[in-house]
Design a protein around this nucleic acid. Structure first.
Lengths: 299, 299
DNA sequence: TTCTCCGCATCAGAATTTGCAATTAGCCTT
DNA sequence: AAGGCTAATTGCAAATTCTGATGCGGAGAA
């Protein structure tokens, strides 16, 4: 006997209100007229007041009915909205995606990317693991992550890539060495003390390849894995090192370090998005790539 | 099989979401656990996607569930709101009230009054009939209207009154007669030509009584029932007449008419709210009086 | 007036839905 | 391996909702 107000009753209420006839409302709702009568009656009992005045020839809203009708309509609208939202979510890809990140998050445009991803694919959840290029590569190969970022060239055959941008690298000198090295050639530069880079840092491969290509094998002063640490050691005059162009120029501006040949690029490396080659046609990977292309303004 | 989404299902959805357990939700809802399972299942089928992930030890919202939950909560909130509004309307007096109005609507403060009435008693509908004091009195006595406004004193024994304000009346003179009559006494004034007032106008009784009390019986020039007509005739120099103070002063300001003795009140009459004495204790009448008192700033 | 039509209310029975108790199944902890 | 926790399933009982038939009352037409 004690049954709460339900949506189907509100729908009947609204339909009767706009038709002015129980019979016509019943037809519209694919119901029998007694069913409509009963639903209206139930609502009137629930509300403790009549919603319609019965006239021969139809019904008409009471003042109370007029006041309550808009609320009922709102509920119905919200209900339709909810169902519509559910329907639009039906086709959406869903699942958890693990992404390996490296270096400075801002350089990966990871904020805008995830925002766009969330907006376009609300059912996808992203989990990030921070590391360095090598570890990201390994995890992509082992499939413990779905994709990631990589700084360097041609990582591996069974890993596909989407190049995002080129990062330039400069050689940074301590102010004390500026006079003798600022415009030196590679041969001279090779004789100076260099700050070694841990193999776990993105810079390791870059530096290694640079040395090999210039055919030098400098003296290594320790091994470090943080760009910030390198920076401090350069400032302190311990040795020279390779830095990302953006970082280098920022600190060169106030004179705390000096750039070799005024900041001429020593080498470049592509920043790439990498994923297992087997998943080239995976819709989730396609989704990730599409939104990355948009964020990075790629074709 | 094809059953629409219903409020009780949404309530279960929300409860399960905030409890994290079907069992606990069932307890809160005074339902059995299978019932909750079935309702969630029905919703998931309706939405075409799972709302919860089942874990040993409880359930957790899926991403889709998280997105749809706020909408469900909104619907429930609106539903509660609707029921609450209905409950607050339950005790409200309802019905149609017929009110007789007279003269200028603004002078009765009818706008503010009906606005207040509508705000405080939303189920009351008001119907107004415009007329003159005498007809309003008759209709109140015949009970074809529930109450009305009356300009004058002590209308009738079986009619109760609520005095609202005093309206003052001036004698208005044509500019041509100003020199000889502006400060004349009643005796001289009684010799001037007066504009007669139709017995259906509020001014009729007022004028009649004024003449009687001053013991004069002037020459009547026609009989008119609109204040606006009187005004034109005064301007045209046809005769003198009694006008409501506010009207008189407004037109005296630009010199188109002149006020006897600078606007000294010739007489006053109460503006009253009248209703059948038998309904003194009728709650509807009490309601009307209460809101009138508030609008007119009466005790 | 009398008749007919139209629309709502009522009722009994049928169909559907909802709910419950008992049980099963899966996972975790001990 | 056993016990405890939670959700899913199943069969059956209860409640509800729906329908078709019927009754009632007012409005309009003959």
């Amino acid at each position: 006997m004690i049954g709460g107000m339900e949506i189907y009753q509100l729908r009947t209420f609204v339909t009767v209100a706009q038709q002015g006839h129980l019979t016509q409302a019943a037809e519209l709702l694919h119901l029998s007229q007694p069913a409509v009568t009963a639903q209206i009656k139930a609502l009137e009992e629930e509300f403790g007041m009549p919603l319609f005045e019965r006239y021969p020839g139809g019904v008409q809203l009471t003042e109370a009915g007029k006041l309550l009708l808009p609320d009922a309509e709102n509920i119905l609208a919200l209900g339709r909205n909810l169902l519509h939202k559910a329907k639009s979510l039906q086709g959406e890809p869903r699942g958890k995606v693990r992404i390996g990140t490296i270096g400075v998050a801002a350089r990966l445009k990871i904020g805008p990317w995830l925002a766009l991803l969330r907006q376009r694919h609300p059912l996808i959840t992203v989990e990030t693991t921070h590391g360095v290029s090598v570890s990201v590569l390994n995890e992509v190969r082992k499939k413990t992550i779905d994709a990631g970022f990589y700084l360097g060239r041609n990582p591996y055959q069974n890993v596909n890539t989407l190049p995002l941008s080129e990062v330039g690298f400069c050689v940074a000198l301590p102010p004390q060495m500026a006079v003798e090295l600022a415009n030196a050639d590679w041969k001279v530069l090779g004789k100076a003390p260099w700050l070694g880079v841990s193999q776990f840092s993105s810079l390791a491969d870059i530096t290694q390849e640079l040395w090999r290509s210039q055919n030098i094998a400098p003296l290594k002063v320790g091994e470090f894995d943080e760009e910030a640490t390198l920076l401090e050691l350069i400032k302190a005059g311990v040795g020279v090192a390779v830095l990302a162009e953006r970082t280098a120029r920022r600190y060169a501006a106030d004179g705390s370090i000096v750039l070799w040949r005024g900041g001429e690029l020593a080498t470049r490396a592509p920043l790439q998005f990498i994923y297992s080659a087997e998943r080239e046609n995976d819709p989730v990977i396609g989704m990730l790539k599409a939104s990355l292309r948009q964020v990075w303004d790629l074709p």
